[in-house]
Amino acid sequence: MENFFTILGGMGTLATESFIHTLNKRTEAHRDQDYLNYIVVNHATIPDRTEYIKNPSLENPEEKLIDDIKIHSQLSPKFFVVPCNTAHYYFDEMQKATEIPILHMPRIAVDSIGRHFSDAKRVAVLATEGTILTGVYREALEEQGYEAVIPDEELQEKVNRLIYQEVKENRNLNFELYHEILSDVASKMNCEVTILGCTELSVLYDAYDLTKEYNIIDAQAETVHRTLSMMGKNDLLDDN
């Protein structure tokens, strides 16, 4: 197979499925051959990234991530996509393991803010505790002159429950809790934009369109846009 990319997924599986669904939905295609060539690696048994970041005595997922990069680099994809925000804690080491570019989902999300919300200054980040602790979004936002705002303990508990108990454990797309969290950000955090920095939140973003009510940047959706661009395809969302 020529002219393809590799999706290094399974973190979690529903989020990987959502990325693929969004990618295919936004690809301009009139026949089978118009869709993109890609390989999906659903490595579901990679240890939990957030659990390790919070407790380094647990199994470190880095070795398995780097092994996957090395193994699949042998097939010579054009680039890798890693649809897990927290896994970008290991981005530098993964990129050192291959000459093939790896798309950096948090940086892509931050890059897109100006395209959608040119006047934004304060940006809220909703993500796993692991992603928050790594500082990958804070660093990317501050590099571009934005103020990064993270949830307080009460709001983070709601985000954790939505990601882990609702989506990961029970496959429940809890609209009420999702809407409540976005409402809390808008009313209490005084932010112009909210970044959804977890691919489980991206599953909810894809299921419920709240973009007319809230200014949202979904990291997964923006990475889909970048993927289409790099593969020379039009993004059907741009035509709407």
Score class of each variant (00 low, 15 high):
176 E>S: 14
212 K>L: 01
87 A>Q: 09
112 S>A: 15
136 V>P: 06
86 T>A: 09
24 N>W: 04
35 Y>E: 04
107 R>W: 08
105 M>T: 14
125 V>P: 11
70 K>V: 07
156 Q>S: 05
42 N>P: 05
202 S>Y: 04
29 A>F: 10
64 K>P: 00
187 S>N: 15
202 S>G: 04
84 C>N: 14
154 E>F: 08
197 G>I: 00
78 K>N: 13
5 F>Y: 08
74 Q>R: 14
220 Q>M: 15
86 T>G: 10
93 E>R: 15
174 N>I: 00
149 V>A: 03
206 D>S: 15
96 K>I: 01
83 P>E: 06
236 L>K: 14
115 R>H: 08
43 H>T: 04
24 N>L: 02
204 L>F: 04
32 D>G: 14
35 Y>K: 01
57 S>T: 13
123 V>T: 01
113 I>T: 02
153 E>H: 09
147 E>W: 03
204 L>E: 00
110 V>H: 05
135 G>K: 06
131 T>R: 07
129 E>D: 14
120 A>K: 12
109 A>G: 08
77 P>V: 01
47 P>I: 01
4 F>H: 15
84 C>H: 05
221 A>Y: 06
227 T>F: 00
223 T>M: 15
83 P>M: 03
7 I>N: 10
161 R>L: 03
226 R>Q: 15
168 K>Q: 09
212 K>V: 02
127 A>L: 02
197 G>L: 00
196 L>H: 07
31 R>T: 13
155 L>G: 01
166 E>P: 04
14 L>R: 06
6 T>P: 10
169 E>A: 11
108 I>A: 07
102 I>D: 06
167 V>L: 06
79 F>G: 10
99 E>W: 02
51 E>V: 12
90 Y>Q: 10
141 L>N: 10
172 N>M: 10
62 E>M: 14
206 D>T: 10
217 I>L: 08
100 I>S: 09
133 L>N: 13
30 H>M: 06
2 E>N: 15
236 L>I: 07
23 L>P: 12
103 L>S: 11
207 A>T: 13
235 D>E: 07
213 E>P: 03
219 A>W: 05
215 N>K: 11
4 F>N: 03
52 Y>M: 02
35 Y>F: 13
12 G>Y: 02
235 D>Q: 13
85 N>H: 11
226 R>T: 12
86 T>C: 08
32 D>Q: 06
77 P>S: 04
109 A>I: 04
145 G>P: 12
22 T>W: 06
63 E>A: 13
73 S>G: 07
147 E>N: 05
116 H>K: 14
133 L>Q: 14
227 T>L: 00
129 E>S: 14
157 E>Y: 07
111 D>Q: 15
216 I>E: 03
126 L>Y: 04
65 L>S: 10
80 F>V: 03
231 M>S: 11
92 D>G: 04
193 V>K: 07
33 Q>R: 07
126 L>C: 02
193 V>F: 12
103 L>T: 05
45 T>Q: 12
73 S>M: 03
24 N>C: 12
53 I>P: 09
228 L>Q: 08
138 R>D: 08
65 L>T: 05
191 C>H: 03
40 V>Y: 09
26 R>M: 06
182 L>Q: 14
21 H>I: 00
208 Y>N: 11
158 K>Y: 11
